[in-house]
Design a protein around this nucleic acid. Sequence first.
DNA 1: GAGTGGTCTAGACCACGAG
DNA 2: TCGTGGTCTAGACCACTCA
Lengths: 247, 247
Amino acid sequence: MIRTVPSRRQAIADDLRQQIATGQLKAGERLPSEAQLATRYTVSTPTLRSALALLQGEGLVEKIHGSGNFIRHPRRRLTYAGGTGTSASWTTTSALLRVSVRIMDLRAHGDLTALLNVPPSSPLTEVCSVTHEGESPHSLARVYVPRDLAPADFAGGLLSPADVAAHLAELRPPLAEVQEKVSARLPTLEEAATLRISTALAVLSLVRVATDVTGRVVEAALLVLPGDRADALFTTRFMIDERGPKE
Amino acid sequence: MIRTVPSRRQAIADDLRQQIATGQLKAGERLPSEAQLATRYTVSTPTLRSALALLQGEGLVEKIHGSGNFIRHPRRRLTYAGGTGTSASWTTTSALLRVSVRIMDLRAHGDLTALLNVPPSSPLTEVCSVTHEGESPHSLARVYVPRDLAPADFAGGLLSPADVAAHLAELRPPLAEVQEKVSARLPTLEEAATLRISTALAVLSLVRVATDVTGRVVEAALLVLPGDRADALFTTRFMIDERGPKE
DNA sequence: GAGTGGTCTAGACCACGAG
DNA sequence: TCGTGGTCTAGACCACTCA
């Protein structure tokens, strides 16, 4: 159990972490090149890179291909608020957030048919959005709605996300239930590229299914949030004289 | 944007994934040694290892130092049910689950004081538990309770988890609110060792804080679930004539 | 084009697991 | 002890970014 050699990469990561914590390395600053760092620590480049990979995984460092490794700004964690029926609910919604939305019509296939509980090939509207805060993408959302619940002026248009949410709310009956399945995994290559994160950084993946009072699934959403920048918060309140749900 | 070379490691990972999916490689089976695989795919060992790392990240392969790489059994995903006040609530609770519990007294320090909203050094009881399904650990939980809410026969004892939950429920007033903050990250070295997972596999980290009707925090729990084996599910039901929480 | 990170090689040596 | 994975080296060459 004795750690004979604390592993070069751990030692290097610890050292850099320390420098970041103490402010010797400031946010936004560029680290020396990997080759220089490798020389300084007298390790080979792959070893140094694996040390940096640890820091990336912790969200302390961001690599930008071709330009260098940068100390990340003290990450402003965003909190996704669970249990609401809205398309994008951030407790820290601020003017700083910029959202790009793309709307497309498509037909149900694969997992979507099961999620939305519709027959294959039934018409859907897909709303893809990427939330940015300044330069860095903060979330990736794909929302699927049965076509008849999507306003006609959706398709092909570019609307503000507030408009999207408002329009959706208009057409559908009151929600009865929202289920959110949360999992942790590594991002796909595509997700990593969109979110500008390393494939070694964990993401929070949420699948949200909203059902209306008639039991119909009115929305299914797939959300991907970078693990270093986002949490999801779920609050359950109990009524007096109610100890909690069944079981 | 054209993918010039689909990367050796991706190609190898894809090939192995395929073989697992089609059943050419069966669950529990050992893969050829890394050296043999490297030869077969005509790549160097580090490259082959990085391909295996991808599969580990997806939970398809488990490495065991000194004995080889093994195809994981079709993972029976466990689902953590959010919004309940109980210490360990699994929707798939079954006799297969074995739980080891360790109970200790300690004093509040660091983050714990803030989480539990108690002064530093105030007495707490810590319940650590590891859930196993067969050989593989499935979750790691540390539950903190103010000492006066923990039965005297807790300390130092080894109880079944059901007993723990029952005893806790007896002493405290009805819960008013449970907050669960979910995040995705990579495991610490210690967590990875306990859960027998690679440090490259994402974990779901839950912080649950339960408050009673008087506003007192009666329990804070830190849960760590391996991303490849566990999800968390949160269900929100809306009353009629209530469109959902504010905002 | 100069400099950066991304990927890969072909080894070496160490640490762990099982017989 | 022997075979396995774990770590590391000292380069090579490619791809991206920016001036």
